[in-house]
Design a protein around this nucleic acid. Structure first.
Lengths: 339, 339
DNA sequence: AACGCTAATCTAAACGTTTCGATCATGTCA
DNA sequence: TGACATGATCGAAACGTTTAGATTAGCGTT
């Protein structure tokens, strides 16, 4: 900018005024300055600007796994929204690890991001502290934390799983396996509650051996399914509360020599583009990814626009059960349906 | 830092020296400074540091679509690599649009990223100019550009498709449909060359009506497949040169009342985690995503470590044909196999 | 006792912006 | 004609660091 000013024989203040339109500058000087900018190929240095202005027009976004299609879709939507608003997005994958998450959030705050969208991991205590003394707006995505009182957009997970399990029960299933991630994060907790609620509402007992915990990866789903299917009294249906784990479930079913839906019904959380093309076509709980991403972006953009003092807003969206052909009716119901 | 210096009754230079370990500071002052840092909760401002140092320890990464599992996987690997090296990653999705890409690269350069990994889009001319006068190292990912002479990591696309098509030919297929993205990007161009080369090597004619262009999306694959299957002399096999489009192909096959592989064989580029679980299990060309991501990251990290003047390095990796059950033998070959 | 050497510390200038307040023409009005 | 408002431009400080070079203190040599 100094060079531009010199070339145009004006002060840097005038150049700045012209570029930002913060003051009127005469047509004559405007022209000289614009010419100089072109000649020199001047680009404003956003870092210097950020330092002076205290704002970077950059936000931080952390997700546990970017290879999980649910997060991929949401990230994509969020990215587009901020792109439109002239913000850059720094993406971090925490790999479902608490320390990684803390490090990355610190890294983002060091870089003075203007805001944060966090699909958090683990206990919220450290997150809360970090966020409290950095003074940036935060939106919680998909997963809320006790004690962290900020904007959030989440699914009504309990209801969604309640519906899915009830569907299985109505098909005649009585022993329904349930594979979940560690329940220290809210969606897993709430989904489990939906499972229990559905069984309870139907007057069915809860068999603890049918509830298996994994760590969100395919291999965890595989192992959990293997265990369940190897037992003497195996379930007639399995619900996987997490998207990548269902792949493991399907592999285990195949490897053990069973087939879905003939021998065992499967449903899971999160929809895929390919769910209704390949066999079996999975019955899933679809999340409104577009809405989730947009709402999260809007909440943050609203704070960034200056609306700092409004009370925390929590948006709860509804899932949708996509019924396909991976679940079979059982017993009397199957009889009556085939009759 | 000023506050810390005051609280510890030292100069800011000493604080800086201690934090960065750039000079020895006495145990006594060290202790006072550390205490002050804790008391005040001081965090170094990375923006101010970047301004002074001329480096942001941030890199830019642009991909056409983050919802494409291939890019998702590569992004994930790259992200991890830079995370380990203490770099942040700014991710941009260009949505396969040239203007968007140019805008985003400008945005990244404005923010003084130290380097760029680009899975480019469209003509490389503007990219080249932008990159030339910003003086940052660039690594081209997946797609190279004529005229842009930088580090790159790509697949041997021609060979990979040659192998896949030759496999189909060996199964007895003679009319093989080919669905591709617009061929102005190198992988699409090279893959097409592989297709033509394979047919040519087998002495088969190239039927131009069996080659269809789409825009990388599911719907494009759907339409292209619909057209091919509606013709009087439809192909016995279809190869989709792009990952999301194959979903469209499968949907079209279903909607037209055919089934794969009984009525038509299908193979495609890029592997999925679910490819070998659901039916039909797709025969695919798997890219070594881990290696691609790591190599790209390494190339850039090497430049960032100061190795600026080495000549451009181009890494060409090999794809692997994953043979599953979505392709059926045909004619005499089928006879002899069943015999 | 004067000197030089080393180690520890500090002063102050930079990095490239933004912006407040000052300056300076110019024209208007009493 | 002088006072004054207006509009355009500029000077310089500030944002929070890093760092070159200056300063100081301590200590062993000669």
């Amino acid at each position: 900018m100094l060079h531009v000013a010199e070339a145009a024989r004006v002060s840097v203040a005038t150049v700045s005024a012209l570029i930002n339109g913060t003051a009127t500058v005469s047509p004559e000087l405007s022209q000289r300055i614009e010419q100089a900018i072109r000649d020199i190929g001047y680009k404003r240095n956003a870092i210097a600007r950020s330092l002076k202005m205290g704002t970077t027009r950059t936000i931080g976004l952390t997700v546990p796994h970017i290879t999980n299609p649910f997060f991929t879709d949401v990230v994509s939507v969020i990215q587009q929204a901020f792109d439109r608003a002239g913000y850059a997005v720094m993406l971090c994958c925490t790999d479902e690890d608490l320390n990684t998450q803390d490090d990355q959030i610190k890294l983002l705050l060091d870089r003075m991001v203007d805001g944060l969208i966090v699909a958090r991991v683990g206990d919220g205590a450290i997150l809360k502290r970090i966020v409290d003394d950095a003074n940036v707006p935060v939106v919680l995505l998909d997963r809320i934390c006790k004690g962290v009182d900020t904007d959030a957009v989440v699914l009504d997970n309990q209801r969604a799983v309640f519906d899915a399990i009830t569907y299985l029960i109505n098909l005649g299933h009585r022993r329904i396996g349930y594979i979940t991630g560690t329940s220290d994060i809210s969606p897993m907790h709430d989904r489990m509650a939906g499972y229990r609620e559905a069984l309870h509402a139907a007057g069915l007992p809860i068999a603890e051996e049918l509830i298996r915990f994994g760590n969100f990866h395919e291999i965890d789903g595989y192992n959990a399914t293997m265990q369940m299917l190897s037992s003497h009294d195996r379930p007639s249906a399995i619900f996987s509360a997490n998207n990548p784990m269902v792949i493991g479930t399907m592999k285990a079913i195949r490897d053990i020599g069973l087939s879905c839906p003939e021998d065992i019904s499967v449903a899971c959380f999160d929809d895929f583009p390919w769910s209704d093309v390949f066999q079996p076509q999975l019955t899933t709980v679809a999340q409104p990814v577009q809405a989730i991403g947009e709402q999260a972006a809007n909440l943050l953009l609203d704070r960034l626009a200056g609306n700092r003092d409004a009370p925390p807003r929590k948006l709860v969206l509804k899932g949708r059960l996509m019924i396909r052909n991976s679940c079979r009716p059982l017993g009397a119901i199957a009889q009556s349906m085939s009759a």
